[in-house]
C-alpha cells in the first residue's frame, strides 16, 4: 500500500495530466450529444448575458445594413399580403377560416453569438423558453435558412447552424422539384454540397435551391441558395453539386424562429403508419 502511494505521488505529474486530459475528452465526447452539455454551452445564463452585452455594442456598427434588409423584407411581405391582392371573380369575400389554415408562426429574435470557422458552428439567440422557443424549431433569416434550435434555456437558445458537419438538411431544386440532402463539409462558410440529385435532372448554374418541407421544421420553398457549380463523375448516378448560400453567415443579426403548428399531428401520423408496417 505504501509503495502504491509512493508510486502515485512520485508520478503525480503524469497522472494529473492523464486525469485532466481524460476529463477534457470526456467533455468533448459528451458534448457531441448536445443535450448532455446543456449547462456548459453559450445558452447558459452568465455567458449568454456576457455575449448579449458585447453584441449590443457591435450592433451599432451594422444598423445601416440591418435597416436596409428590414426595409426590403417589409416590402416583400407587403407585396405578399392578402390585402394587396384583389379577387377578380365572385362578388363576396370569404372569411378565410378554413381555406387558409395557419401552419407556421414566426417570431423574431436577435443573434447574440455566432461562429463560422469551426466544423460545428452554433448560434446563440436572445429568446428562450420564456418566449416559447422549443428544441427542433427552424430558424431562418430574411435571406434564407439559418439552422435548427438545439438547446433552450430560460432566456437564450442555442441554434445548430447549417454550417455544422452533422447537419443534414433536405433541399430541392426549385425548378424541377427533385430533392436531395445538403451537406456542409466544413471548408467554406459560403458553400455546401447537395447530394443525391439523380443524373437525368437538367441543371443550370444559378438554379435556386429551396427547402422541401418534408421534415415540417421549415416551411416549403424557403430559399437556401443557388447552384454555383456541378459535375457528373463518369459512371455515377448522382451529381456533385456545389451551392452558394443565400445567407451570409458572417453577417447575421435578426432572425426568425419558425414554429410549426401541425408538426405533432404530422409526426404522430407518420409514426403510426410506420408501426403498422412493422406489425
Amino acid at each position: 500500500m505504501r509503495n502504491l502511494v509512493r508510486f502515485l505521488t512520485k508520478n503525480s505529474f503524469i497522472f494529473l495530466f492523464l486525469l485532466l486530459e481524460i476529463f477534457a475528452f470526456w467533455m468533448l465526447i459528451a458534448n457531441n450529444s448536445y443535450q448532455n452539455s446543456k449547462f456548459f454551452n453559450s445558452s447558459n445564463f452568465f455567458v449568454g448575458n456576457f455575449y448579449s452585452t458585447t453584441r449590443n455594442i457591435k450592433d451599432y456598427f451594422n444598423l445601416k445594413q440591418v435597416n436596409k434588409e428590414l426595409a426590403e423584407q417589409n416590402a416583400k411581405l407587403q407585396s405578399n399580403n392578402i390585402s394587396s391582392f384583389v379577387k377578380v371573380y365572385g362578388r363576396t369575400y370569404q372569411i378565410n377560416d378554413t381555406s387558409y389554415h395557419q401552419t407556421y408562426i414566426y417570431s423574431t429574435a436577435k443573434v447574440v453569438n455566432n461562429s463560422t470557422n469551426k466544423r460545428q458552428n452554433y448560434i446563440t439567440i436572445d429568446k428562450g423558453d420564456l418566449n416559447g422557443i422549443e428544441a427542433e424549431m427552424g430558424v431562418i433569416s430574411a435571406n434564407g435558412v439559418v439552422g435548427i434550435v438545439k438547446n433552450v434555456s430560460k432566456n437564450f437558445s442555442s441554434v445548430m447552424s447549417v454550417l455544422h458537419d452533422k447537419n443534414k438538411l433536405s433541399a430541392k431544386i426549385k425548378k424541377s422539384g427533385y430533392y436531395g440532402s445538403l451537406v456542409w463539409e466544413g471548408n467554406n462558410y459560403r458553400e455546401a454540397q447537395l447530394k443525391d440529385i439523380p443524373n437525368h435532372v437538367k441543371l443550370v448554374v444559378g438554379d435556386t435551391v429551396v427547402t422541401t418541407g418534408y421534415s415540417s421544421i421549415f416551411p416549403e420553398n424557403i430559399l437556401i441558395g443557388t447552384v454555383s457549380a456541378f459535375d457528373l463523375p463518369e459512371g455515377n448516378n448522382f451529381y456533385n453539386i456545389t451551392i452558394t448560400f443565400a445567407v451570409d453567415f458572417k453577417n447575421l443579426s435578426h432572425i426568425y424562429v419558425v414554429r410549426s403548428l401541425q408538426k405533432n399531428e404530422r409526426e404522430l401520423l407518420e409514426q403510426e403508419s410506420q408501426q403498422e408496417i412493422k406489425e
Binding site: 468533448l28 456576457f50 446563440t124
Partner: peptide, 30 residues
C-alpha cells in the same frame, strides 16, 4: 497543469467548444 486546464475550460465555455481548448491547453502544459 491545473491553470492550463482552467484557462482552456474558460475559453471553451465562452466559445461553446467543450473540451477542445481544455485538452489542447493541458497537453501544452504537459
Amino acid at each position: 497543469l491545473f491553470l492550463a486546464f482552467l484557462i482552456g475550460l474558460t475559453i471553451d465555455i465562452f466559445s461553446s467548444t467543450m473540451g477542445f481548448h481544455t485538452s489542447a491547453a493541458v497537453f501544452m502544459a504537459f
